[in-house]
């Protein structure tokens, strides 16, 4: 799973905003902001070098939760990224 190159996270005050920095990707209407967990996962998906399994392990470790919980949360977040068109 990898975030499309045209999207970047931009810190504005306490929010992380997803912005389209490449004209090749669609400029979406409205504003997408991520919380700190979303930001953590986004940063791992940005490079696209990690497998789903590795990302889930990292989430479990970072937030001190079991793998099942981490996995459920990860796929829920991934679904919303996919829906928004942010994934390759």
């Amino acid at each position: 799973m990898k975030i499309k190159d045209g999207y970047k996270l931009c810190k504005v005050k306490d929010s992380s905003i997803v912005i389209a920095v490449d004209n090749a990707v669609m400029d979406f209407n409205g504003l997408v902001t991520l919380n700190s967990t979303g930001e953590f996962i986004w940063s791992m998906l940005e490079k696209g070098e990690m497998t789903d399994e590795q990302v889930i392990e990292a989430i479990a470790k970072e937030y001190n939760v079991d793998k099942n919980t981490a996995s459920a949360d990860f796929y829920e977040f991934a679904d919303s990224l996919k829906e928004a068109g942010f994934l390759e």
Partner: peptide, 23 residues
């Protein structure tokens, strides 16, 4: 609220389409 402030501000300014300007 912080994110509402961002949204409100962006609604009342010009948003460039060029990536560098946007950042």
């Amino acid at each position: 609220d912080g994110s509402k402030a961002i949204y409100s501000f962006l609604n009342q300014t010009i948003k460039p389409s060029e990536p560098e300007l946007k950042l």
